[in-house]
Design a protein around this nucleic acid. Sequence first.
RNA 1: CGGGGCGUAGCGCAGCGGUAGCGCACUUGGUUUGGGACCAAGGGGUCGUGAGUUCAAAUCUCACCGCCCCGACCA
Length: 576
Amino acid sequence: MRVSKSFIPTVKETPGEAEIPSHKLMLRSGLMRKVASGFYEYLPLGQRVILKVMQIIRGEMERAGAQEVLMPIMTPAELWQETGRWQKYGKELMRVKDRHERDYALGPTHEEVVTDLVRRELKSYKQLPMNLFQIATKFRDEVRPRFGVMRSREFLMKDGYSFDVDDAACDKTYWAMFEAYKRIFKRCGLLCSPVEADSGLIGGSFTHEFMVLAESGEAAIALCEACGYAANMEKAVGVPTPPAVSQAASEAYASVETPGKHTVEHVSELLKLPPRQFIKTLVFIADGKPVAVLVRGDHEVNEVKVQNALGATELVLAPAEKVMEVTGAPVGFAGPVGLKGVKVLADNALKDGHDYVTGALAKDKHLVHVEIGRDCPAPWYNDFRSVVTGDGCPKCGKPLKTGRGIEVGQTFKLGTKYSKAMKCVYLGEDGKDHETVMGCYGIGVTRTVGAAIEQYNDADGILWPISIAPYQVHLLLLNPADPEVAKAADQCYEDLKKAGYEVLYDDRLDATAGFKFKDADLLGMPLSVRVGARGLKEGVLEVKRRREKEPVKVPLARVLDKVREMAGEEWKLCTP
RNA sequence: CGGGGCGUAGCGCAGCGGUAGCGCACUUGGUUUGGGACCAAGGGGUCGUGAGUUCAAAUCUCACCGCCCCGACCA
């Protein structure tokens, strides 16, 4: 493609609306433009990247035995009512009415639609397994769209759904999809790790999120570099650092004055005892009932874990008045000793410690030398806290790291949740009806593009992995006014195309060499070939990898070889 | 939905009661051409919308709309 004939509106200055690198660069490099908050137009370069990601996904899904279909974006309300999600999905579900006032939802995901399709066609176990996917536009009316394509209201998603005869068969499909996902992201050139994630209240199911590590990621994760364990913070388990005191206190607990000190930090300073020796007591309201959760002073309560353990549908931190009512003291002085009428949960990390400091259930007072079990009833121990840096890996014990990630895909074993609600059954060998066991598998296509940029950029622009780069080679004509140079560049363009490369040829007459270099860095094609009068005098062109600082001078006749060699290096980075 | 910020030329911004500005981009001509060239001449605006205050509003007041950030939320 000749730049002179193409629609690639690059801009020098970053539009004010963009905050994170991928968003800034997608606008600056002319990949997309915004129509309204959360809605974007993808321009030719952006669309090429999207198509490449889609092709990789298609290839791997088919390789793993899934078949592509296309379902409607607009879906009848009745289907959503069958599973209760017409209500449950809330405002995020975009709803529209047709001229007859019938309700529809613009699909945010397609479990209902695909399950309806399959139940209508599925008769016998002989038709299973069935694994269908589509790549289509999805709508989610996000409360706060942000970061460009990272959280938009309309986006491209690959969504796949599998139907199996039983749990074991579903597991097999699940792991096949899991492997396919690893290959997909690797082929896109992404460093991506599957992490265990919270599966909410759906019992017996499990799920993995595929995370691209990036500062700007919205999800917090914990990972072990030693053994590869990785989990979403909602789910991650850590081996706590040892307790401050491992010997039981010999003396009875005693009250100390701690006027105005209502945080662990402040009391810790006052008493000159480490936060690890504290019991932090938080009061929550779970489905209307107060519960107290105890964690060590250097730990934080993980609300998702508490909620799951209680089986509660709603969990909120208790307001100050409620804390007063339950503990008889203002916020900051709660403790387990003498606490009555409340269910008490304690994090496992408290189990091995002794001689704790805790709130005294009275204003400006704390207790020291507290022994759980001696001074208060033994609470319900479980994992109720979030992993912190320094915790040990639950698998290998090495230190865990915490970081942030962008969720580009998720695999989910659904079980019979939808097949039961929608009666998606098949006739088994035994002559009886059985519910299908389902899995669902999503990939945010547009988000994957953003994540790639998030992972690969520098001060000058994007560094595309070759597998998803809009073009593989960026050819720069540096002296367009010089007929010799122009001729050589034209020839090079033809040669590269003939050799099978996708070439973006900057043949513009009105742009200076410097301008073209800047554009090339911004656009980020993995390889560039520079044709200039300077080099031509010596009979050479310059070939450069975007990731390298300096170009390599190559004799005219050897340019194709050099490009092939460098392209080969780039492809290695995208090969599973 | 709560808190904060911003809407002035395509983009980035200044102006903050008295004639609408700057840089980049764009058009034309000329000189240039290896890291976002230079000179000259141009084109482009109901200052987000609507009310109000005032002799006079981009500027002050109110309402609405839009956009961005933090939070809540995210099968």
